[in-house]
């Protein structure tokens, strides 16, 4: 079904180009391969990530949209729901069979009517509101919980770095 996946990804790319959501840019790295995308996510306003521009890679499986893509930040970002190697760990990126502990029952799951746009919007919310219940980066979760000031300092450095300062 790679043909269906390609058709769907092209439709999503078109949609994102015509109606880009605020603070998000995304598209294939190279028009020859629609299964690898690059996204730029602006840090949400009124949060410690405000002002940053964070690049990430999305890798789509051949059976997309039956299965979700994987997402990985290609910059350093210290956050409870991002693994130290950049991989994003939020519920919408998991197939329903994958039910890692700690997700709230109300959390959104991947389904074929979700989309790249929905994922990226969830990532923006995740930046604004980390979930320390299901930590991918235990250090970051502890810092967020016990030393909010320290967390914000690290975030500020991340923001400056993301702008090449």
């Amino acid at each position: 079904m790679a043909g269906s996946a390609l058709k769907r990804l092209m439709a999503e790319y078109k949609q994102l180009t015509l109606n880009p959501p605020e603070g998000i840019i995304a598209g294939p790295v190279d028009e020859e391969n629609f299964f690898e995308w690059e996204a730029l996510i602006m840090g949400p306003q009124d949060t410690c990530f405000e002002g940053g521009v964070f690049p990430a890679r999305l890798t789509f499986p051949p059976d997309y949209p039956l299965g979700p893509p994987k997402m990985k930040f290609s910059c350093d970002i210290f956050h409870p729901n991002i693994y130290p190697d950049g991989r994003v760990c939020i519920s919408i990126l998991h197939a329903p069979g994958d039910d890692p502990m700690g997700y709230e029952t109300s959390a959104e799951r991947w389904s074929p009517v979700q989309s790249v746009e929905k994922i990226l919007l969830s990532v923006v919310s995740m930046l604004a509101e980390p979930n320390d219940e299901s930590a991918a980066n235990v250090d970051a979760a502890k810092t967020w919980r016990d030393d909010r000031k320290g967390f914000e300092e690290i975030a500020k450095v991340t923001v400056r770095k993301s702008l090449g300062l």
Partner: peptide
């Protein structure tokens, strides 16, 4: 069941494959 709207129930229990 649970504190869920019908829409939430559908997006968690109906629409995802394998549920």
């Amino acid at each position: 069941d649970g504190e869920r709207t019908v829409k939430q129930f559908c997006s968690q229990e109906v629409e995802p494959m394998g549920k």
